[in-house]
Design a protein around this nucleic acid. Sequence first.
DNA 1: CATGGGTGGTTA
DNA 2: TAACCACC
Length: 290
Amino acid sequence: MPVARPESSDARIIAHVDMDCFYVQVEQRKQPELRGLPTAVVQYNEWKGGALIAVGYEARKFGVNRHMRGHEAKEACPQINLVQVPVARGKADLSTYRNAGSEVVSILSRKGRCERASIDEVYLDLTDAAKAMLAENPPERLEAVDEDALKSHILGLKNEIGSDAKANVREWLCRSDADHRDKLLACGALIVAELRMQVLKETEFTCSAGVAHNKMLAKLASAMNKPAQQTVVPFSSVKGLLESLPVKKMKQLGGKLGTSLQNELGVNTIGDLLKFSEDKLQELYGVNTG
DNA sequence: CATGGGTGGTTA
DNA sequence: TAACCACC
Ligand SMILES: Nc1ccn([C@H]2C[C@H](O)[C@@H](COP(=O)(O)OP(=O)(O)OP(=O)(O)O)O2)c(=O)n1
Ligand SMILES: [Mg+2]
Ligand SMILES: [Mg+2]
């Protein structure tokens, strides 16, 4: 069933949730002394200090990144704490991280259909939950809006200098004259804020999320503001967002296909890509890839 | 000798 | 099915 289907006409509310520096958080929960300190998770240790596979945000400030060796990381950040991945039968054993991911999934699956996309990310279909909220308990009738939801980033929301960002977000979330699709997105944002709070309470892990009308946009949005934040993509901001989006940032175009688009077709942004017809792209790259 | 482990999708 | 690709 891989062939692309056109977007269903009925707007869906999709969230993408991605854990922040996931393996690091798992290790910091196990060793709370490491909380707040620059930390990375390293695989094997004999050769050049092992390879970093997850880097905490405190360490990222020193320029430490994945693919560095342990020794390099120590060079960039001498105080860094390097935690080793458990080893079983001579091999790195990721089961503790996989199990930690399952803890999160069990919480997120309470509010909607849940698709595990990787060891640390999940797509949620919140369409039904958002519709129910809009019918029974719409944001416009809320006296107090969840503090975490007020910290959402709303793409395209004008944020005039000197104006209070939270007040703007509250107004966007609660508008009674908003586009119907945006009202559903607002409900989705409130639900996701609540779920993220629940995840923090029950697992001690923070995560970031994107809320949009499809998976591709939700995934894009979840990465825009990290850690411990959420980003909403209103329908009206989609065109402008994609127009200037570098082609390599879109999921599936980060590798050789994206490079081919740039070098063979001169396509640098999604806006450029949209000038090609679906037929033309299928002719060039095959039906599925095209 | 060179050095990661793991999953899921597409192509021919 | 094996090789390749994309991603975490
Ligand atoms: N090449 C990679 C990429 C990631 N991971 C593992 C370690 C990460 O902790 C986890 C999740 O990957 P992410 O790309 O989501 O990165 P993080 O969660 O570590 O950081 P971020 O806060 O940017 O999401 O998967 C890995 O083993 N090898
Ligand atoms: Mg992550
Ligand atoms: Mg991830």
